[in-house]
Design a protein around this nucleic acid. Structure first.
Length: 501
RNA sequence: GCGCCCGUAGCUCAGGGGACAGAGCGGCGGACUUCUAAUCCGCGGGUCGGAGGUUCGAAUCCUCCCGGGCGCGCCA
């Protein structure tokens, strides 16, 4: 793992020391509560430990002074030299800054979206993609070998109704009562043959536009072929003429039907079994399922299947995200393109753009229900903070265009200004922010952080001239590092970093 | 009834044990002869749903209650 400046400073104070940025300037550049945490186990008063730690800190060249405050916080005030060093380290690491935090490099599959191809993707699928893909990007950045898969049902009741609906329109009839309707059905009916591949093709186009690229596509009918050989390996029983999996004995909330009583045909849940085996056989150290909250009832099913078959359940991970509620003027929006509601993902993207769309959908934590008022979405999107962040990136690009010559050494001509110190510290947070977002599967931390970086940069920019200033060498370096961190942050959530705006 | 998620500023939401709780939007008032004003600065705004508990310290962890969302199919 590449050592980042803050971790390095913390480690020089002891392995238990974690540094954080205090909210107030009078509390120093960094602070640690290590004395408070260790007071119990060390059987010493926190203030005493804090004094020892402060003395130790002051012996470090980077530390100008250390103060003990409150119940036992140690506040560190750093000299300019530390900021120069920190910036140099970031620039030396370049694109690797904050990367490769994984303790163990894993082969990981992220299966997401997986909407059945009975119609265009809507905004909720967009959330699945924005969330799942951002998690995948974070995992890749951490050093894992990630592959994205789309799994869909190409047989069964839903698909039959879908095909029947298209066929009906082709015959000039109305789709059946329980069928699918809408303009897209008419479009599909205009082309001969099975509408499923065409529907899937359109879905893929939407996803590519949304910058979610799938490495593999898997379908239920293929997966199901291995079901007969696997059924005997499961813990099952017969009841009411159906075959049940005794999944509740393996950590699931309930038992599940595998073969229907009516015709002994496999349920969707049954297909999960060979599908999971396929993932395990493929050697994924971690198989991630990205599911909407409406599927949370099955979150324990997958690991139960793994246990039943003797696989390590740790290899299974289910990520849940809450739903997207669409409203129009305060009322539940209908999913009708005809009415002009922005519910299909493509319409949503037409309306607000891919950058604002991805940003918006990934900015909310997965546990938060997203409320979108379709009347306000387009209007609000112009005020999306994504542009604030992109603008910082474009501003830097402008400076660097005007700067002549390659990067020199990071040198200091005069004492650092507060805005410069704040910006360096902000950039230095990046590795920890990314690590935390990755481990918690919480990509929403990245946009929140990127706003802070842009914030600090815009303030710096407003106060200080970069080119042809005494401090040009340092400030150019600061600009390069800032641009790099913003570009990486945006990339991690699938947003473009423009050179000009 | 049971399970999962949520309740933080007028609105949309960050923050998931640390020091007086943050941002954006909205409102009001300022700042461009300078590398992009899609920017910056200031003002106003909160019983962090409620009550107990754990802790030196709780918006954050635990319990209960109140409100809202979603599940509890031989649909997917």
């Amino acid at each position: 793992m590449a050592a980042d400046p803050v971790s390095a400073l913390a480690e020089s104070l002891g392995s238990e020391v974690v540094l954080e940025r205090p909210g107030e300037a009078t509390h120093g550049d960094y602070a640690t509560n290590a004395a408070l945490r260790l007071a119990g186990t060390r059987r010493k008063p926190p203030r005493e430990l804090a004094l020892e730690l402060a003395a130790q800190a002051e012996s470090l060249p980077a530390v100008e002074r250390a103060e003990v405050a409150g119940p036992g916080f140690v506040n560190l005030f750093l000299g300019d030299a530390w900021f120069v060093d920190a910036l140099s380290v970031m620039l030396d690491q370049g694109v690797a800054f904050g990367a490769d935090s994984a303790a163990e490099r894993l082969k990981i599959q992220v299966e997401m979206v997986s909407a059945n191809p009975t119609g265009p993707l809507h905004v909720a699928h967009g959330r699945n993609g924005a969330y799942g893909d951002s998690v995948a990007r974070l995992l890749e950045f951490a050093g894992h070998d990630v592959s994205r898969e789309y799994y869909y049902n190409d047989s069964g009741g839903q698909m039959e109704r879908f095909r029947a609906s298209v066929d009906a329109v082709r015959r000039g009839e109305e789709p059946p009562e329980d069928g699918y309707r809408g303009d897209y059905i008419r479009d599909l009916a205009a082309k001969p043959g099975d509408p499923v591949p065409e529907m899937l093709h359109r879905i893929e186009e939407t996803l590519e536009r949304f910058r979610v690229h799938f490495d593999t596509w898997e379908r239920q009918s293929v997966v199901e072929r291995r079901l007969p050989e696997l059924l005997p390996k499961l813990d099952t029983y017969e009841k009411d003429g159906a075959l049940w999996a005794r999944s509740s004995a393996y950590g699931d909330d309930e038992d599940r039907v595998l073969l229907r009583s009516e015709d002994r045909s496999p349920t969707y849940r049954a297909a999960d079994v060979p599908y999971l085996v396929e993932k395990m056989d493929a050697g994924f150290g971690r198989a991630i399922y990205v599911l909407g909250a409406d599927h949370h009832g099955t979150r324990n099913w997958y690991a139960a299947v793994a246990r039943m078959l003797g696989y390590d359940p740790e290899r299974i991970e289910v990520l849940l995200y809450q739903l997207v509620h669409l409203t129009k003027g305060g009322e539940q929006a209908r999913m009708s393109r005809r009415r002009g509601d922005i519910v299909f993902l493509d319409d949503f993207l037409d309306e607000i753009g891919v950058d604002a769309g991805r940003w918006y959908l990934v900015s909310r934590g997965p546990d938060q229900t997203i409320e979108i008022d379709v009347d306000l979405a387009a209007e609000r999107s112009q005020k999306n903070p994504v542009y604030y962040v992109q603008y910082a990136h474009a501003r830097i690009a402008g400076i660097l265009r005007n700067a002549e010559g390659a990067a020199g050494a990071v040198t200091l001509a005069e004492p650092l200004a507060p805005e410069e110190r704040e910006l360096v510290k902000r950039l230095a947070e990046f590795p920890e922010v990314v690590r935390d977002a990755t481990e918690r599967r919480g990509p929403q931390a990245i946009p929140a952080y990127a706003i802070r970086v842009a914030d600090d940069f815009h303030r710096f920019y407003h106060e200080h001239r970069v080119l042809e200033s005494e401090q040009e060498a340092f400030r150019l370096a600061l600009c390069r590092a800032t641009q790099s961190v913003i570009a990486r942050s945006l990339q991690l959530v699938g947003v473009d970093a423009p050179e000009r705006m």
